[in-house]
Computed example of a mutant assay.
Amino acid sequence: MTAPTINGTRYPQPVDELLPAARNLTIELGELPSRNRLMQTYRIGAPKATELRDLLAQEWHQLAIAAAAVRKAGLVADESPVDPGEYAEPIGPDPLPAPVVPESAPLVVPDPAPAPVAPAVEPVEQVTASGHPGTPEADKPRRRAAVWPVVLLALPAFVAIWSGWVGLGGLTGFGVVHPLPGIADSVSLNTAITLPIGVETYGAYALYVWLSGRVPARARTFAKWSAIGSLVVGALGQVAYHLLVAAGWTSAPWWITTLVSCLPVAVLGMGAALAHLVREDVTE
């Protein structure tokens, strides 16, 4: 024969009638009972146990105070033990309860300002794109942006910059020299090519060092400002050459010649300084 429930009836009872006994059970345990514990203790189904546990979670602040007071006084909350037994709550509406025998008065707890308690959230299984729950999804490798269009951009720019610097070098006194006199007199070199190689190569390298983020702070700062300066000087050189050619000049004014003559020395100094700063070990 099935044992009666807490109020003397073998039929499932509403949550409101189960709540006082569930409060006492929570105070005795000192923590919120699990849904399975409520189902076994009061022989109720999962939906009703979930609703009952949510109500206890909302009152957890007061119940915790009462549990601490009971524990301190050495008392035990009054909960009538029930055999978890055979009864399973039927599916559908609860039948009409039999006459209820009133139980002992529930424990009265002082009502301080309740603290907000987040409702319990049931864990949700992770479902991947393959449809198997719990299987972690492999990280997809990121595709790097294509850089080959830069070659198409660089080719016409290289032709224009090279011809501009070589032409400006010819207007400022740079020309063909024999670097090995007495050794190989037939070897000749047009020094005008030193301008595009030095200025533009340094500007591109300093720009790379600045944007790489893999160098000490001092090297990055120096590379930033020297790259900007190198690009500005390169632009001014192109402007000066085209203005001189458009005006019909066969040689550049002295002040343009002076500035252009100093460029190889300046590039050498900035390149050496940047090389030292890049290899500098910074310990802070």
Rank of each mutant, 00 (worst) to 15 (best):
K48L: 15
A154D: 14
I91V: 10
K72V: 12
E89H: 00
W60D: 15
P47Q: 07
Y42P: 12
G131Y: 03
P84L: 01
T128A: 14
E59L: 10
I91F: 11
P123M: 01
V82W: 06
A98P: 04
A120E: 09
Q58D: 13
G45T: 04
L96R: 12
G45P: 02
A146F: 12
Q126N: 02
P149S: 00
V108L: 13
P90A: 04
L153R: 13
V108M: 05
D54K: 13
R143C: 09
A118I: 08
R71G: 14
Y87D: 07
E122P: 07
A138T: 12
V150M: 12
L107E: 10
P95H: 09
P84S: 04
P99L: 02
V101I: 10
A64G: 10
A64W: 02
L75Y: 03
D78C: 02
G85W: 00
I65G: 14
T41K: 04
P141L: 09
A66W: 00
E125Y: 07
R142M: 12
A46F: 06
T128F: 06
D139K: 06
H132V: 11
L63D: 02
L107F: 08
P81S: 06
R71E: 10
V70T: 07
A129N: 06
L155S: 10
A105E: 14
T50C: 09
A69M: 01
P133G: 04
R53Q: 14
V76E: 09
P110Q: 03
P84M: 04
R142F: 14
G85K: 00
K48I: 08
V70R: 01
V147G: 15
G45A: 06
E137T: 15
P81D: 06
D54R: 11
A64C: 11
H132M: 09
A46V: 08
P99E: 06
D54P: 01
L96C: 03
A138V: 07
P102Q: 00
W60T: 13
V109L: 12
V124M: 04
P99N: 11
T135R: 07
E59C: 08
A69F: 00
P47K: 11
A57M: 06
P97R: 02
G85F: 05
V76P: 01
P119F: 00
P95Q: 04
L52N: 02
P133N: 08
V108R: 12
P99D: 05
G134V: 01
A146D: 15
A115V: 15
E89C: 00
A49T: 07
V150L: 15
P81R: 09
D139S: 12
E51Y: 08
D78N: 06
L52T: 04
A129H: 13
P97V: 00
K72E: 15
L96N: 07
G45R: 04
A67F: 08
V124R: 07
A77P: 03
P93C: 02
G74E: 13
L55N: 09
V101F: 01
P93V: 03
E137Y: 12
I65C: 06
R144S: 15
V127T: 04
A118W: 01
H132P: 03
A67W: 05
P47S: 10
W60G: 11
Q126H: 02
W148M: 09
A67G: 13
A49V: 07
A68F: 06
T128G: 15
E103A: 13
W60A: 15
L155W: 10
Y42D: 05
R53D: 06
P90S: 07
A49K: 01
P99Y: 00
L55P: 09
V108S: 10
S80L: 14
A98R: 05
P136L: 11
G131K: 03
I44C: 02
